[in-house]
Amino acid sequence: MTAFGRTLARGLVATVAAVGFATAAFAQMELKIMAPAAPGGGWDQTARAMQAALTQAGAAKSVQVTNVPGAGGTVGLAQFVTGAKGDGSQLMVNGFVMVGAIITNKSPVTLEQVTPIARLTGENQAIVVPANSPIKDAKDLAAALKADPAKVTWAGGSAGGTDHIMVGLFAQAVGVDPTKINYIPFSGGGEALAAILGGKVTAGVSGYGEFEGQIKAGKLRLIGIASDKRAPNVDGPTLKEQGIALEIVNWRSVVAPPGITADQKKALIEAIDKMVKSPQWQETLKAKGWDDAYMAGDAFATFLKNEQTRVGDVLKSIGLAK
């Protein structure tokens, strides 16, 4: 039996189980998931993985994925908030990046307007330096930044994105004016990684997964990850244990339209809960290297609110928002 066959069989078992318990209305749900990005990207992959897991776990009868790319997801968000209002069968994938994009793009529609359902995945953010760099740990990096923030060049993803925000938070945490950071945005992980490997910049910031191979091969040195405690799949310290109060996770989540009833919200949360616990979903997480960061309902709503405030403050302090 191939891996696919096994998955299918497991999915069937889950389906049968779901039908067996069929008490909730969600097993009959016909869902639409919007990925506010082009096909192929992270949000699209998440939406399509959900599509497979939801149907195979019997949490929904059918799932359709639509793509609305543009402007860090804010084009999709606007369409979702106005077009899907009150529709309890629609979902949208989003994430940390959208929180920043709404602010920097001055989007008229915000995440205040959506109904938070659940946070699904998260990725550890890491800081690295080239292996031959004189900077050995977070303390060295902090000292270099304090000495002259202009001379510490940072490579990372797009301006105002997760990586940029993290550098701003790092500067704040070590007592350096965040407007003084010399952050150089690159498009896509490959280009930034090349600049770090070539020693063109002082340090690099990105998801840990992008650096993993190079760290293991000894070409990059891991300075630290920005999680609250050490991660099982990461061989290295956190920034927190090196005395730098910086915690940031690049999370992805799923939200529902505004104006849905409490029952509709409950049904959606139940469907997602069922999906997250399905073997199909767990297998996808493993295959894609995503960390499980499941957090549902009100806890997620509070989390989302806090992230919005925090990101807004950082973007203001690095001069990308007013």
Partner: peptide, 19 residues
Amino acid sequence: IDALTGQARLTFGVPELLD
């Protein structure tokens, strides 16, 4: 969006033009 500063250029408020 300008790649280095994240500032919008010549988009005239149309979000689809930001990319």
